[in-house]
Design a protein around this nucleic acid. Sequence first.
RNA 1: GGGCUUGUAGCUCAGCUGGUUAGAGCGUUCGGUUUACAUCCGAAAGGUCCUUGGUUCGAGUCCAUGCAAGCCCACCA
Length: 749
Amino acid sequence: MEKNYNHKNVEEKIYKMWEDGGYFRPEICEEKRKELNLSVNKETFCVLMPPPNANAPLHCGHATYSIQDLMTRYKRMQGYRTLYVPGTDHAGFETQVVYERQLKKQNKSRFDFDSKTLFNDILSFVKENSTLAINQLKKLGMSSDWTRSTFMLSDQVLSTVYNTFEKMHKDGLIYRDVYLVNYSPYHGTTFSNLETIHIEATSPLYFVKYQIKNSNDYISVATVRPETIYGDVAIAVNPKDKRYTEYVGKVVTNPLNGREMKIIADDYVDLEFGTGALKITPGHDFNDYEIGRKHNLELISVIDLEGKMTQDAKDVAGMNIKSAREKSVEILRNKNALEKIDEKYTNNILVDYKDNKPIEPLLMPNWFVKMDKLALNALQAVKKDRVKFNLPVWKKEMISWLSNIRDWPISRQIVFGIRIPVWYNVDECGSSHIVFLDKNKNRIEGLGKNLLDKYSLEEIGQGLQKIIAGVDTKYLISKTRPGERFLQETDTFDTWFSSGQWPLTTLKYPDGEDFKKFFPTSFMDSMWDILFFWIARMIIFSLYLTKEIPFKQVFIHGRVDDEKGQKMSKSRGNVIDPITYVDKYGADALRMGLLVGGNPAAKTTSFSEDKVRGYRNFANKIWNIARFIEMSESDAQFDKNKLDYADDKQIIDDMEKLIKEVNTKLNKFKFNLAGDTIYHFIWHNLADKYLESIKKREDKKSAMTVLGYVFKNCIKLLHPFMPFVTEEIWQNLYKKDQKEPLIISSWPE
RNA sequence: GGGCUUGUAGCUCAGCUGGUUAGAGCGUUCGGUUUACAUCCGAAAGGUCCUUGGUUCGAGUCCAUGCAAGCCCACCA
């Protein structure tokens, strides 16, 4: 053994030995343990890997997969039939954004391609780079069964997702509706509520006069969006507001288009704010939409999908929102309908989480999942602890989210995703809006009935970019084209619709062997940022399809921040690439830095090079204990009844205590405490005290036997944390007596 | 507006159901060519455990108030 531990000579070699030996596969482990007369537990232990984006390099967050691998290795050594299932995600929206940036560099955009071509181009871009993430996970030491790896766009996944959609439709859980959605004109797609955020902005607040019919009075209304006045259908005041009591029920004139609108009373209106009177624009504001429904008001769209004003916006039709706003203000001013402007007004505007571009609430036909009943099942499962959480706070958050759930818009207007398996008969969707590239690659847009006169169905189908079918358009659900005259819905599923079924698709629901053996799974590790996006949806889907929960235990880990406790971000320039630390200090040190250097269960945990370096030193420490043992002679087999020295008895005592403590802590998922306990024992008890004391003994042989025995148990306890260096030491020291590699050796109980 | 979390050594953080002299990594100072390791060893400095009050034989740990920082949800036109 070399004087210093060098991870570079070890990690790749050891990983290959494990993988080639099939030790990541439950079947082979079971077989080998039986051959060697090691106990085999009938129970299974299964962990699903949250699928990383197929084409992006790993970031620090992925290094927390060490938690999953730690649990896997722990249970594997305990003799459970252990399976850690890997996979990769297509990450629809994220990937498309990255790809579109590439296109932009070539002066192209998504509009230059028909959707089929664009999809295939993005897919091959993903495939070209898809081994990147997997290879990096291997470098971290993940002991997952790569022969079972699943890709989110594989046939198996598609088939399950389609079947689920069909079943939900049959059960009346899928509906199509015009709904006010979060639409991003910039990205050209809808976002769910979870994907939008509010940011503070300064927007001029305009006070607009609405003339009361047959009177000289007017009501003044404050708004930051005068261009939407074209879509106003009412004025609302609070019923308790004495200033306006006499006006309720009267009629005002819309200052921009002359529409006659009622003054209604609704206690949603805040008496304190603005003038106490609110314009109601159900087509472009979520609260107004609710009020509109309550009072049976008309829905008017004055902004279209491109972010331009519609024909209903008369004088400003065709303009973009910004110019339309300026123009509207000008018109109001000319009509003497503008009372005043508060230029310094600050408000919160709705933007997307990705690029912080404005979201327009727009009326759009969309596919929805009815959530009330589905969520109720999940809620009960969580309340009854059928799914356990590592901290009570996550259970609470889950309960409150599930209790206040809204219907889920599942259609996205992006290309890179799983296309919704819905087909329209072109002869029945004449009023649908269709966009396609003709054979000369010119972008053609119009109503279905008009286009079909000029173009062949084949040409439209070939170049198809988008169909926006009316809510009442007839459709068929089918995995394949149901007939000559059919075009498929161009919307794709929200990525969480497919990843929400990950426990089912990876294990090959409903008939796969793995599904029968390993479902429900045992341990699910994830960060809190996708608690609702993902964890909740997996519970919902599993309960819906199988009546079973998808996993028994959820472990929520924290965000990995930099050494100053600041969030890592590209703009701050403090992003740490985990692989550079693996190269510099070894995967073992990196894993310890995350698992033991902080508290992985805390909301955030700080990570630094110093920590990793500290644990690299620890790897070297145990390496040198191993060298010391290798260089000294020992004579007999360890026998607990033949301990002559008090020191020997003490260290054995301490070791037994250590084993108990580590087991207790691991079973409570206190990984940092378990690891820290081992660290202390090895360095400050075993090495600094015991090992130093026996150097002075005359008869060293018996002491070396004790040391060898204690150290062997330490190496086992440490294996789930630091798999590489422990396995390498095991191969050097204990191969003579132990035929099995450390990875499947028996755990000290 | 509603909810949550955190406040411990110079820095980043551990501290399990309350129980002796409060710990780690890095940093600082002093001393070590001990034949496993300088990626090391020995020693030291450094903490009113945010404030105040309470429960208790006993509080870093439990409760309340205040102060400070951060997060999540909802969003007032």
